[in-house]
């Protein structure tokens, strides 16, 4: 049976991992390749590396890091951050990434999804969506959650699905950094409406939150950062717990 996946996410700035709380206040958390290898050895199923560098030099550093990850780590990994055209995707894939995650660029120009799917296959294309819920429902945000758009979460996710996305990585901005659990209602609706896997992101604080993302949210994978980086939850403990709770995970 296909296993539910646990995915540590590493935000990378100038070659170092960082993690924000509610998308601001960054704290240092180590060397990304070292950290990635440690997670891989502990049983992480995939890794996500997000480039949050703005400068040109920073981008070069990130590409070098992607090559090191590909050479040193033997599980699949996704890279994202600043990917806005096909040539960026090509560069990341030839550096050794298995998948790319696109976010603002896809909202600005949805055809990018079709292009990636046609050129490299759907399995390469992870569409990341940052959304916040208010009285009007769930709204998608651009630029790391700074700029609201006109797009609703569910209709945008559906469109991305239909254009050829391979997976949806949904981050609830209401839940991110708060550590009170994932946005299970929205996740469950995404799982019902989409024909592609959904990765839950934002809100992990305790092991039970992962269980709920799978059992209530029907997510295919759960992503977290700080609970892993700061040792609040260890991946082997989490896997044992989930297995005990009847969830099919890779041991």
């Amino acid at each position: 049976m296909l296993a539910k996946r646990i995915i540590p996410c590493l935000d990378v700035k100038n070659g170092q991992t960082v993690k924000g709380t509610n998308f601001v206040n960054l704290r240092q958390a180590g060397d990304p390749v070292e950290l990635g290898r440690t997670y891989s050895e502990q049983g992480a199923d995939e890794l996500v590396f997000l480039d949050i560098t703005a400068s040109h030099e920073g981008r070069k550093t990130f590409a070098d890091m992607v090559e090191r990850v590909a050479a040193e780590i033997s599980i699949p990994f996704t890279v994202g951050g600043g990917i806005s055209e096909l040539s960026d995707v090509e560069a990341m894939l030839s550096a050794g990434a298995d998948k790319v995650s696109i976010n603002s660029a896809a909202l600005r120009r949805p055809e990018l999804i079709d292009e990636i799917a046609q050129h490299f296959g759907s399995q390469v294309c992870v569409v990341a969506i940052d959304a916040r819920m208010d009285d009007q429902g769930w709204t998608c945000y651009l630029n790391g959650g700074r700029i609201p758009t006109e797009r609703g979460l569910f209709e945008w996710a559906r469109e991305a699905n239909d254009r050829g996305a391979g997976e949806i990585l949904f981050t609830s901005m209401n839940h991110d950094g708060v550590k009170t659990g994932f946005a299970n209602d929205a996740l469950s609706r995404l799982a019902e409406e989409l024909s592609i896997p959904v990765i839950a992101s934002g809100g992990a604080g305790e092991m039970v939150h992962f269980r709920d993302a799978f059992t209530i949210g029907h997510a295919d994978a759960a992503l977290a950062a700080s609970v892993f980086h700061f040792g609040e939850i260890s991946i082997p403990d989490l896997k044992l717990y989930l297995k005990k709770e009847g969830i099919n995970v890779r041991m």
Binding site: A3, Q123, E192, S195, P197, D220, A221, R250
Partner: peptide
């Protein structure tokens, strides 16, 4: 079924 997603992607035994 709806849960049968294609491609088959991930870890399986």
């Amino acid at each position: 079924r709806h849960e049968d997603k294609v491609p088959h992607m991930g870890w399986n035994d």
